[in-house]
Each structure stands twice: as structure tokens, then as C-alpha cells.
């Protein structure tokens, strides 16, 4: 068999939709006998909190489909065109959109972000929290899950220098 491949990911986004790719790719890499490291920085850092409260904000991404996870199949196919003036200003809109996306994911058999994160840790994926971001945004280690390493750009780059795949999410 080929030598062990290495995957290096920087997770810089903290919305629910962008929380998925780092955990999906890292857990799958581990399942494919690869080593994987995810470096959490800036808005990606809260993904290491014990309770992940990531949300989606539809007004920040006009390409995001707005579909209902219930009703007849025809109804579920409707892509609701909500103008930004509403999605960006209506109180509770992001919470509603987040609930809808979570419900859709659940119905489609997609794992939750928490489940994927757990599977990453079970299979030996290393998580590194950006120390600088912690200082800047005022996070403490007590807020994060166990098993997290702490470091900076050099810590990540030392690993990434030998990585076969490096991704910035």
C-alpha cells in the first residue's frame, strides 16, 4: 500500500453550512487511512466549542436555496426567493433558516456537525485551535471540547509542509 497521505485543512468559517466541509473531509480522510489536521482560526474557532451554535445567514449568500423540509414533494421543490431586505432585516430570519436547514439535513440522512466532529476525534483527526484568535476574541480552553491542541501559524505550517492535500475553508 502507498505511504500514509496527509490532509491539512484550515477552517475559518463558523456558519452552519461552512462548518460541514472541514469535518466531512477530515473524517473521510481518516476513514481512508490518511492523517488529518484541522486548524481552526477566526470564525472557525467556535466550531470547537462544546455546544456548536452555528447558524446560516441566507442574506450573506444569495445562492443558498430556501426550501421547505415538509409538505408535498412539489411544495418542497419550491425555491423561495426571499429578498435580502427581508432576510437581512427580519428578526429571527436566520434562526428560522437554520432550523429549516437542520431539518432538511436530518431528513436526508446527513450527520450533524457534532456527530462528524466526534467521528473525527474517534478516528484520530487532530484539531488545532488558533491561539491568537482565542486571545483576540476572548475564548478560553474551558469552552472547548477535550483533545484540542493549541498553536499558531507555525504549528499548522510545520504539519502542512509535509501534507499531500492542503485546503483553506
Amino acid at each position: 500500500m502507498a505511504e500514509t497521505k496527509k490532509l491539512a485543512i484550515i477552517a475559518s468559517q463558523g456558519t452552519l453550512d461552512w462548518a460541514y466541509p472541514p469535518f466531512i473531509l477530515a473524517s473521510t480522510a481518516a476513514a481512508m487511512d490518511m492523517e488529518a489536521v484541522v486548524f481552526f482560526t477566526f470564525y472557525g474557532l467556535p466550531l470547537l466549542k462544546k455546544e456548536i451554535d452555528a447558524k446560516v445567514a441566507p442574506h450573506t449568500n444569495p445562492a443558498m436555496p430556501m426550501k421547505m423540509p415538509f409538505g408535498s414533494s412539489g411544495f418542497q421543490e419550491i425555491n423561495w426567493q426571499v429578498p435580502n431586505i427581508i432576510s437581512g432585516n427580519m428578526p429571527g430570519f436566520d434562526n428560522m433558516a437554520t432550523s429549516l436547514m437542520k431539518e432538511t439535513f436530518k431528513k436526508k440522512g446527513v450527520a450533524t456537525v457534532e456527530q462528524l466532529r466526534e467521528m473525527c476525534q474517534e478516528s484520530g483527526v487532530r484539531f488545532i485551535a488558533c491561539q491568537m484568535t482565542m486571545e483576540v476574541f476572548g475564548f478560553s480552553k474551558e469552552e472547548f471540547i477535550d483533545g484540542v491542541e493549541y498553536g499558531g501559524a507555525a504549528t499548522f505550517l510545520e504539519y502542512a509542509a509535509d501534507a499531500d492535500i492542503s485546503l483553506f475553508v
Binding site: 466531512i24 473521510t28 476513514a31 481512508m32 440522512g109 446527513v110 462528524l116
Partner: peptide, 11 residues
């Protein structure tokens, strides 16, 4: 189940 769960569970 949807991607990547079948792979993770298989492994």
C-alpha cells in the same frame, strides 16, 4: 444515510 456516513460506518 448520506455522505460521508456510509463510508465512515463501513470503515
Amino acid at each position: 444515510l448520506n455522505c460521508p456516513l456510509p463510508i465512515l460506518k463501513t470503515k
